[in-house]
Simulated scan of single mutants.
Amino acid sequence: MDAQLIDLNGRSFYLRSWGKPDLPPLLMLHGFPEYGEAWRDLAPYLCDRFHCLAPDQRGYGQSWCPKGTENYTLSKLVSDMATLAQRIKTPLTVLGHDWGASVAYGLAMFRPDLVSRLIIANGVHPVPFQRAMAAGGAQSEASQYINAFRKPDATARFSSNNFAKLEGFFRHGMGVDWLSESRMRAYRTEWARPGRLEAMLNWYRASPLVVAKPGVPRTDLPDLPAERLMVRCPHLLLWGPEDKALLPEATAGLEVFAPNLTRIDISSTDHWLHHQKPQAVADAILSWISNG
């Protein structure tokens, strides 16, 4: 693994990479509460085929961390990665997990000129996800943590006692505990960088998506025009079926927005499939690409 600081739109971002630079690029976008190191388990299985590029996204790890919720809207997050993509050989393959999936979807939807293939690992397109979260059913119940993360005192609550509540959510809230103590220490170190947890939570606060209370459907939904939210490139959705936070209903109807969609379940995994079964995830990706 190599690492360097790069300039994106006049701001400093930390970028990890695996594989030879002359290989086709694979942009790997982490989610919450991880950082670019999230791909250390998977990248070794892909770096013979790709130059794997894993930035710490805005507000995470060693990358630029501006104050203010307004700096974490999806358009600004996508702009960062579009700038990075333009510095690489494009169009390129993009892989996103969790919140990184939202940015990956944004690139595919709003900058289709930059994306040749889209791979999502336990992440959600905004329209099926919003419908599921607004219905007041199982996905609404599973998404209540989002409202907790949006509260004004969330940074203080989740950072207290050496990040005990955030660690509990990370290790048990979305799947089974896969973390060693040494890995956990590394995550705590990243979370403890000045302003980082507040910035990470601002990703949730800046999102317009609404979460219904269980049993109380919401109708005051943001405008999500279908014609602007299409994924027209080949799209692979990898899914850990035991995910506690993202349920199958969160992807219902995805084919409407991604007509060239392939779904592959990675058995005996949950939200953290890229850590639990990295070889199976890599095999699925490589097989899909070779058959595409």
Score class of each variant (00 low, 15 high):
Pro66Asp: 12
Val231Met: 05
Gly253Pro: 01
Arg131Asn: 13
Ala212Thr: 06
Ala121Pro: 00
Ala134Trp: 05
Thr189His: 09
Gln144Gly: 14
Arg87Phe: 07
Ala121Lys: 01
Tyr145Val: 15
Lys165Glu: 14
Ala284Glu: 02
Gln144Tyr: 13
Asn161Ala: 14
Thr269Ile: 02
Leu238Ser: 04
Asp283Lys: 09
Ala154Gln: 10
Gln4Tyr: 11
Cys47Gln: 14
Tyr145Phe: 15
Leu118Trp: 01
Asp22Thr: 15
His30Ala: 07
Asp22Met: 10
Ala142Trp: 07
Gly175Thr: 04
Arg40Asn: 10
Ala38Trp: 01
Ser268Gly: 05
Arg193Asn: 10
Leu107Pro: 01
Phe169Met: 10
Ala199Cys: 12
Ala43Arg: 02
Asp7Cys: 14
Gly253Asp: 03
Leu92Phe: 05
Tyr35Thr: 08
Tyr60Ala: 12
Tyr204Gly: 10
Ala280Thr: 07
Arg232Cys: 03
Phe163Ala: 07
Gly240Arg: 01
Ser290Glu: 15
His125Gly: 06
Gly136Ile: 06
Met81Asp: 06
Gly61Glu: 08
Gly292His: 04
Leu42Asn: 05
Val231Ile: 10
Ala258Ser: 09
Val124Ser: 10
Lys151Pro: 09
Trp203Arg: 09
Gly123Ala: 08
Gly168Asn: 14
Gly240His: 01
Trp39Ala: 02
Met174His: 00
Leu247Asp: 02
Cys65Val: 13
Pro222Phe: 02
Ser160Ala: 15
Phe110Gly: 04
Asn9Pro: 02
Met200Pro: 08
His30Arg: 09
Lys76Thr: 12
Lys89Arg: 13
Asp41Arg: 11
Ala134Met: 11
Gly253Lys: 00
Arg183Glu: 11
Val94Glu: 05
Leu15Asn: 13
Asn71Pro: 03
Trp272Tyr: 08
Ala3Ile: 14
Leu107Val: 06
Arg111Asp: 03
Ser143Tyr: 08
Asn291Gly: 09
Val103Glu: 00
